[in-house]
């Protein structure tokens, strides 16, 4: 057991050293979600559609005004969970899960490169446990995902996102949700990467999966706005649960729903346990000798 810890420490150290020593790469992976936030969050102002201009309200009789305000508040609450939310804050929170998705996906790439450059063979002729190799890869995916998600969150706040955490522990709950998501996704993509011999096919797999996973979730717009078939997909997409958990804890303030949050965390725990378990087993088999 102590051996495994030492091995994971050594291998994880290598992965992270390589990562933080190339700030350019770090910058590039952060720029993409920031651009998404700018394009989607600022331009596609969904909540803005539901705001009635002041002068229009003034032209209406007073009882109609309060009725309309009430109606719109209900529509907002129904779609976005609370009435006072602006779209930029809403989607910037969704972006945190997307950052985790993209970063976890790319963690599979490093194993493809290690194989290609011969480093993997170097590991395999050493007494290092096969499991340590996989687990250190998964953990490096998780650490990178979380650090980048935090950076993107700080940028979102700088760009005007307004968060209202439900309590002092809320940010921790949000981070745990993202960690669980990253565990499952990293394991999934690493187990795929171990099987694939070329980085081209790994890139193709990533490109095939990333946009559908993002759009078929509640990251950019409420699930209730989707057609029924897409709702069905979105409701089994783990990203939806992570996004909702982060929204409940960071965005909803007092109107946070404990039961929804518990459901999210439960679903994510199941997802992480299942995919990490199966992923590590599959990846371990992939490293076995031919």
């Amino acid at each position: 057991m102590r051996d495994i810890v030492v091995e994971i420490y050594v291998l994880l150290g290598r992965e992270l050293k390589k990562w933080y020593r190339s700030p350019f790469l770090l910058l590039m992976t952060i720029i993409q979600p920031v651009i998404w936030m700018g394009l989607f969050g600022k331009a596609l102002n969904l909540t803005g559609l539901l705001q009635v201009p002041e002068e229009l309200l003034r032209q209406l009789p007073p009882d109609a005004t309060s009725l309309i305000a009430e109606l719109f508040n209900k529509v907002m609450t129904n779609l976005f969970g609370a009435s006072g939310i602006d779209y930029f804050s809403y989607m910037s929170v969704g972006m945190l899960s997307i950052v985790v998705l993209f970063t976890s996906m790319s963690s599979g790439m490093t194993i493809v490169w290690d194989r290609r450059l011969g480093f993997l063979n170097k590991l395999l002729v050493s007494p290092v446990k096969r499991g340590s190799i996989i687990i250190s890869k998964v953990l490096s995916g998780v650490v990178r995902s979380i650090v980048q998600a935090i950076l993107v969150m700080l940028i979102a706040i700088a760009l005007g996102a307004r968060y209202s955490p439900a309590g002092p522990l809320a940010p921790l709950v949000a981070l745990s949700a993202l960690t669980l998501l990253s565990l499952g996704l990293s394991s999934l993509f690493i187990s795929i990467a171990v099987r694939l011999r070329s980085w081209e096919s790994q890139m193709a797999t990533i490109n095939l999966l990333n946009l559908p996973l993002m759009f078929a979730s509640n990251a950019l717009y409420p699930i209730k706005m989707m057609p029924a078939w897409l709702q069905a997909i979105a409701s089994v997409n783990p990203i939806s649960y992570a996004v909702d958990a982060v929204r409940q804890s960071l965005l909803m303030g007092a109107s946070m729903s404990i039961s929804a949050l518990l459901l999210d965390i439960g679903a994510l725990t199941l997802f992480a346990a299942l995919f990490t378990g199966v992923g590590v087993l599959v990846a371990d088999r992939g490293l076995r000798r031919g």
């Binding site: 051996d3 030492v6 091995e7 420490y9 050594v10 150290g13 050493s126 007494p127 290092v128």
Partner: peptide, 8 residues
């Protein structure tokens, strides 16, 4: 040192 770590 990385190699040393792999061999404990």
């Amino acid at each position: 040192m990385l190699h040393a770590g792999l061999y404990h």
